[in-house]
Design a protein around this nucleic acid. Structure first.
Lengths: 186, 186
DNA sequence: AACCAACATGTCAACTATGACATGTTGAGG
DNA sequence: CCTCAACATGTCATAGTTGACATGTTGGTT
């Protein structure tokens, strides 16, 4: 599983508490890459600590513990990130599954779903473009690297949007419009 | 969870045996949308049958059973596919996670991973383009609807490829070359 | 006639993830 | 000083997933 690697990755950028990590998973990371709730994060941090890949560097106010990666953890992370094409990477995406199964709907239903998808992609796109405005041009400093991820999301949305529009066109062409009766076919 | 819906969706297109369904998950469906092995598929088919969403329509040679969706199953599938924006769709993608965590690597390592990603996307792209050649122009008949999914994959690869190239450029610009290599730029 | 790859299904233990429930702390604002 | 939202962590039962193991059939080739 990849949760430990996700945690190592986040901690490698900057030490954090379990709580902060949990917040991280509520954002883009959890939305596009990997989901996790605090009920899996806290125990996993414990396991990583036992394995010596992370360590508690600070204890704060509300019983909070700040974790940081150890050299061994950094090595483990690097190994995972640079690993070979990785056979069987885990994939599980409900939205994409819907897209794959769209063919099981009759054209009118499929069209309405596609329109919804197109709208959502457009909205996500606008959202990320706004973010880009704020953060300005991409200047990946030692810290502000999330830009790579943001750009990825942006291009992803563009692709989905374009695809949905294309698919709508295809369907409209082949499933003749219901409009004011024009059965047309034989 | 979505496995039952994936099965309903596949069976809605055409009745199949558990074995055939398993094969389906080894292709693009499993690679991009939803993974599942036969050890989860067979039991799930049993549960769906009990719930009256699918039924065995034929028993073949090697103890094979062909399943088909019932009207109730079709209704369930339709409900799921046309369902609201679905707030908490499950997402879990190891490759995308890698991309999100790339920032944790130092530039040389990140670059080599990005190059690998770009190459793989290019390969996938070529693969799908070849498929498109064979199947000819998109003519979604009652059966050949997988084209929507193929086009989706194609655009997905394009997006990943473009992103990787962009990211490489960004990194090369900001992380000044170390070696005796001519920096060239500026 | 023997062999084998592909067909076809299954069990089960171990592991992972999720949602419901639980508990206590701190700081800011009224 | 009281209250409450956000901070911060945890348990536990249930449910879902995976990999290892297991078994038998059929059709084509040698």
């Amino acid at each position: 599983m990849s949760l430990p690697h996700a945690l190592l990755g986040l901690l490698a950028v900057r030490p954090r508490s379990g709580y902060e990590l949990t917040k991280e998973f509520e954002g883009y990371l959890g939305r596009y890459a990997w989901q996790a709730g605090h009920t899996s994060i806290y125990p996993e941090l414990g396991k990583l600590a036992v394995r010596g890949l992370v360590e508690v560097t600070h204890e704060g106010p509300r019983g909070s513990r700040t974790y940081a990666v150890t050299p061994a953890g950094r090595e483990e992370l690097r190994a995972w990130l640079t690993a070979p094409p990785s056979r069987s990477g885990k994939v599980r995406n409900e939205e994409v599954l819907r897209m794959f199964l769209l063919s099981a709907l009759d054209p009118p239903d499929a069209l309405s779903v596609l329109r919804r998808i197109a709208d959502e992609a457009a909205a996500g796109l606008a959202d990320l473009r706004a973010v880009r405005e704020v953060t300005g041009p991409p200047v990946p400093g030692p810290e502000g690297f999330g830009i790579l991820a943001a750009e990825f999301g942006l291009r992803q949305y563009e692709a989905v949007h374009g695809w949905a529009l294309w698919a709508i066109e295809q369907l409209e062409q082949h499933a003749e419009p219901a409009g004011s009766e024009a059965p047309a076919e034989s």
